[in-house]
Design a protein around this nucleic acid. Structure first.
Lengths: 194, 194
DNA sequence: CGCGACGTTGATTTGCCTCAACGATTGTGG
DNA sequence: CCACAATCGTTGAGGCAAATCAACGTCGCG
C-alpha cells in the first residue's frame, strides 16, 4: 500500500510521531476500484472514510427521472463520502463510483473511533478537513444560486483545470448543473465568438 | 449571559467536567444584534465562532446585480459563519445579519485555539458539528440540482416548519433560489388547486 | 467489425425571470 | 397619534435561459 500521499496530506495539518504514524498505518486498508464500478451505492451504508491515492471517484445522486447530479469529484489526495449515511449509519442516498481505475485507502468507522481514542490529534485533523469541506460547499452553493451556466463552467475550469482535461464533457455538465446538450451548445457558441 | 442552550447543545456530543465547563465559560462572550444589523459584512474578516441563543440570523451572498442569496438561517441552537474567511482570515464574501433582534454567544478564534489546547475534547465536538454541517450541505446541493422550485419549497417547509411561519416570504424565496414574484405566483397556483 | 457511449445540432417547449403597476401592512419621526 | 415612507406581497405581460426530444456522426473498445 502506498501511504505517501496520505501521510503527506496529513502532515499539512498535524505532525505525527513515528509511533502515532504506526498506529495510523495499523488501521489503513487499500482497495482498487475499476472504472464504472461502485464504491458505494444508494441503499448501502457508508461504513468507511475514503482517501483517493490514484484515479478519480465521483459522488452523485440519481433523481426520480434517472438523471445524475454530481456533488464532487475526488482525484488523488481527496476524501469522499456520503456524510449523512456515515454519521447516522443509515442507507446512503448518494452513489460513489470510479470514473477511471482508482486506488483508495480506507478506514472503517470503528477503527476511526479507536484512532481518535488512541491519538486525539486525529480529531483535530478531521475537524480541519471537515471545516475546509464546509468552506467549499458554501462557495459551491453561492455559485449555484448566483451564477449563470457559462459562469459556473468558467469557474469549474479555473478551479479544476486538470479535471476538465480528463473528464468526459457530460460529467462536467452534470457537476455544473446543465444538460450535456446545453453545455455542448454553450461551448460551440463560446469558441465561434473568438 | 444565558449559556444553558449552548451547554445543552454541547452535551449532546461530548460530556464536560465542571472544570472543563468553567474553562469554556471563561472564553464565552455574548452580544445583542438588532434587527437588520450586521454581525459580519462582506470585506470584514470572520474572527469568531457564533452560536445563536435567541432570534434569527441569516448568512447570504450578494451577487453582481445586487441580489441576495441566502445560504443558511440560524435560529436558536445553531452555529453560523463564513467558513472560508474563518479559516483563512481573509475578507469574507458573505454577509451575516439579523432578521429579528438576536442574541449570540461568540468565541474568538484565538480563544478557540486555546480551548482546543486546554480541552482537546472540543476538537471532537467541533469535528462532529462540522461533519453534520457537511451532511446538510450535501443534501442542500442535491436538492438544488435535482428538484423544481415547488419541490424545493415543499422541502423547506417540511425541514423548517417553524421558520416558514416566522420569515417574510421573500427570505424563503431567496433561500430556495427563486424570485419573490415567482414564489408568490407558485403559492397562489398551489392554493387554488386545492 | 459492430455496438454502445459520447458529442453535436436543430426545432420546440417551458420554468422561471424581468419589469411595471398596484394594494396592504408596517414602522417611524414629527 | 397621525402622516408618510418603506417594505412586502400580488398580479400581469412579455422575454429568455436552459430543458426536451429527436436525429445523426464519431470514436473507442470488446
Amino acid at each position: 500500500m502506498n501511504t505517501d500521499l496520505l501521510l503527506q496530506h496529513i502532515s499539512k495539518h498535524i505532525s505525527l510521531t513515528g509511533e502515532e504514524e504506526d498506529i495510523l498505518k495499523s488501521v489503513l486498508h487499500s482497495k482498487k476500484i475499476k472504472k464504472k464500478h461502485f464504491l458505494l451505492q444508494e441503499g448501502e451504508v457508508n461504513k468507511t472514510a475514503t482517501f483517493v491515492t490514484s484515479g478519480i471517484l465521483r459522488i452523485y445522486s440519481i433523481d426520480k427521472n434517472g438523471f445524475e447530479h454530481i456533488l464532487q469529484f475526488a482525484p488523488p489526495g481527496w476524501w469522499i463520502g456520503d456524510m449523512k449515511s456515515a454519521i447516522t449509519q443509515q442507507p446512503a442516498t448518494l452513489n460513489i463510483d470510479a470514473i477511471e481505475d482508482t486506488e483508495i485507502i480506507w478506514i472503517s468507522k470503528e477503527d476511526l473511533e479507536k484512532l481518535y481514542a488512541a491519538v486525539p490529534k486525529f480529531e483535530r485533523f478531521f475537524r480541519i478537513l471537515a471545516e475546509n469541506s464546509i468552506a467549499s460547499y458554501q462557495q459551491r452553493l453561492v455559485n449555484n444560486l448566483s451564477l449563470s451556466a457559462a459562469e459556473r463552467y468558467d469557474n469549474f475550469c479555473k478551479l479544476y483545470p486538470s479535471l476538465v482535461q480528463n473528464l468526459p464533457q457530460k460529467q462536467v455538465a452534470s457537476y455544473i448543473g446543465v444538460t450535456p446538450e446545453f453545455l455542448s451548445k454553450m461551448l460551440s457558441n463560446l469558441s465561434e465568438k473568438k
